[in-house]
């Protein structure tokens, strides 16, 4: 297993890449275009700050990224208005590739972005980060610029500033540690080396993005990792420590829904790869319970992890990028 060697060669801290001028020079030398996609759904409170920081720091001061696009699933608040007021290109996901229809979900936005944006590298950054900083982009782009073999760079968040005992636990959020890492330990042990496999911030080369399928919901990150791993191997990945990410805390019930979607996508992949054999059809209903007037009652949530195919299979995409 390659984990130790990979951790050593492909795990970075964003501070390694502080020299933005050098990054811009490298990008220009390779004649690359870099696009930033921010998928949104009702993020009016945080989107303005993200746009301003990225435009100022990574377009005006150091021209590392060439375009910023907000791709929205149908916000009912002022997300798109705020984003546009600060100069982002804004799109309703349903208006991109209309022939393919519209499905509501973050994965859908990420998938449509591949068609809409022009970059050779696409960086995805979630819109709910309250401590946004340009490192959230340059920290992820840099390994792609400096290591040609790296295809997919994932963010993780650690704060190794002070710890009294020399050894300290490091890892991801609750769903990662309770569900994803145990699953990876069982079926894809090398992928456990990704500290936060579910983080919503990553930078990927177009040639990889166009070859992988996109679940439209919670399963998009885990299926990406499995697909890229099985196709290109562990060394296609790198990961960058971006220090601290402050965002909304989700309650346990929401994490339950997330875990349910992730598990669906995982089982789907594991079955395709012949690693598990699920004999009967599994339910797509998540059941959670609550009490009303001292009686227990169930709440049912239908969560179906629909999937978009690799976009290279879409005619309009091929006409635009591979004509």
């Amino acid at each position: 297993m390659n984990i130790d060697a990979w951790l050593k060669s492909n795990t970075f801290h964003h501070s390694t890449f502080w020299d933005l001028k050098q990054l811009v020079d490298e990008k220009e030398r390779q004649n690359l275009k870099i696009s930033l996609c921010i998928p949104t759904l009702n993020e009016e409170h945080t989107i303005g700050k993200e746009i301003v920081i990225f435009r100022s720091e990574l377009m005006t001061r150091y021209p590392l990224i060439d375009e910023i696009a907000v791709i929205d699933s149908g916000s009912t608040d002022r997300t798109l208005e705020v984003a546009a007021s600060f100069g982002a290109d804004t799109y309703f996901s349903g208006d991109i590739l209309p022939s393919q229809g519209f499905k509501r979900g973050k994965g859908e936005n990420l998938w449509k972005a591949i068609h809409q944006l022009e970059g050779d590298i696409i960086v995805y950054v979630d819109a709910d980060i309250t401590n946004i900083h340009s490192r959230f982009v340059y920290g992820l782009v840099a390994p792609l610029l400096y290591q040609p073999e790296t295809q997919y760079v994932k963010a993780f968040y650690d704060r190794p500033l002070a710890f009294s005992q020399g050894i300290r636990p490091s890892g991801g959020g609750r769903v990662t540690e309770i569900l994803t890492r145990p699953l990876f330990s069982l079926f894809f042990p090398e992928l456990t080396a990704l500290m936060q496999p579910l983080s919503g911030e990553y930078a990927v080369r177009r040639k990889v993005l166009e070859e992988i399928a996109f679940p439209i919901g919670y399963g998009v990150e885990i299926s990406h990792l499995i697909d890229v791993y099985t196709k290109w191997g562990l060394y296609a990945f790198a990961q960058t420590d971006l220090d601290k990410r402050v965002h909304r805390n989700q309650d346990t019930r929401d994490l339950g829904k997330m875990a349910f979607g992730i598990l669906q996508s995982f089982l789907n992949r594991a079955q395709q790869l012949g690693m598990v054999d699920v004999k009967s059809e599994v339910s797509s209903i998540l059941r959670q319970f609550q009490t009303r007037e001292q009686m227990f009652e169930q709440k049912q949530f239908t969560i179906v992890e629909e999937e978009r195919p690799p976009i290279i299979t879409v005619d309009e995409y091929r006409e635009k990028f591979h004509a």
């Binding site: 700050k49 301003v52 920081i53 435009r55 100022s56 720091e57 005006t60 001061r61 600060f86 100069g87 401590n131 946004i132 900083h133």
Partner: peptide
Amino acid sequence: RDLLLANLVMTAE
């Protein structure tokens, strides 16, 4: 504006 607001964000945070 963007430069100013970005500096404002980074200063104030």
